[in-house]
């Protein structure tokens, strides 16, 4: 860390103290091994420096590019699906429901399900979507179908559903927290000025909750990059994601350089996608507030 730069930063004393533990841990336990990994990706299996691993990604027949794009696409779908669930529910819990007991109870129920562990949470979808799962059995009983629907389980649908299931509470919590701190009087004022509930939500609540929504979007996107369980347990034959492809290179092919290359590519493309997602989301949320209504609220955000 350059002392000159630190000195230049305003209020540097306490900021340095607050940043040091985390940045130092990252430097020792994260940056150095990752640098090693990046170096490894530039070698071939005999240890010679080579760009062959990166070049091999361009070989479309290998399908590696498809897997990368699928991973990023699924990640974005998971964000959208989580938003559809989390936005209304967070608003309901933060601003509509009158009983703090119900509010706490619902949040508690959602958190407690995590204790079942990711494996059980994922496997449990087989019992719902399978040939003899809850949905097929109920539909058969009701006489709505005569043959079980095979396509429910083992495919992108089931995998995306489980990924969403496993992460959407993160977005719910951050959105809830940032909606909770919005002053009720601001929303009331908007309504007094003639805004419909929907307009008040989109033009006032959402822009003010933006930090929570954006950070939540990051939180739900990221696990897709590491997902191994959902694609393998529910994904069927054509839903491979990057994390399994990387694992196979390290564990089964014993091709660490290629595994390292795939990792570097995933980190870079994942970060870029993430920044794009954050940018688009915050722009969209800001755009909401530019329509009509001026709330006259002093902006707390920098």
């Amino acid at each position: 860390m350059s002392a000159g730069l630190v000195k230049n930063a305003r209020g540097s004393g306490w900021i340095t103290a607050a940043a040091l533990p985390w940045l130092a841990s990252l430097l020792v336990f994260f940056a150095l091994p990752l640098a090693g990994l990046a170096a490894l990706s530039l070698t071939d299996q005999s240890g010679q420096v080579s760009l062959a691993n990166y070049a091999s990604l361009a070989d479309l027949a290998s399908g590696r590019l498809d897997v990368l794009l699928r991973t990023l696409r699924i990640g974005v779908i998971v964000i959208i699906a989580s938003l559809c669930i989390a936005l209304p529910v967070a608003y309901y819990l933060a601003k509509v429901v009158q009983s703090p007991r119900i509010e706490s109870l619902i949040l508690l129920l959602v958190s407690a399900t995590f204790l079942a562990g990711p494996l059980v949470r994922t496997v449990s979808w087989r019992g719902i979507l399978g040939v003899h799962g809850l949905i097929n059995e109920s539909l058969l009983q009701l006489g709505l179908i005569s043959e079980p629907i095979l396509s429910l389980l083992y495919g992108e649908l089931a995998m995306t559903l489980a990924l969403t299931y496993n992460v959407f509470p993160f977005l719910l919590f951050t959105t809830y927290l940032s909606m909770k701190v919005i002053d009720d009087r601001i929303i009331a004022a908007a309504r007094d000025l003639g805004a419909s509930p929907a307009a008040a939500f989109f033009r006032v609540v959402l822009p003010l909750a933006a930090p929570g929504v954006v950070t939540g979007a990051v939180l739900v996107f990221v696990p897709t990059l590491s997902a191994v369980l959902e694609p393998e347990i529910l994904g069927g034959t054509s839903s491979r994601l990057m994390a399994t492809a990387i694992r196979d290179q390290f564990f089964h092919a014993h091709n660490w350089p290629l595994g390292a290359t795939l990792t570097v590519v995933l980190i870079v493309s994942g970060t870029i996608t993430l920044m794009l997602v954050a940018l688009v989301t915050s722009l969209a949320l800001r755009a909401c507030s530019h329509y009509g209504l001026s709330t006259g609220v002093p902006s707390h955000a920098k």
């Binding site: 730069l5 940043a19 940045l23 990252l26 994260f30 990221v222 994390a243 990792t263």
Partner: peptide, 22 residues
Amino acid sequence: TGRFWRTASVLGFIPLAVPVLV
């Protein structure tokens, strides 16, 4: 504030983008 801390802030999130297995 300042470029240094803004860069440091972004760097602090990088572990998120690394697959857990790796």
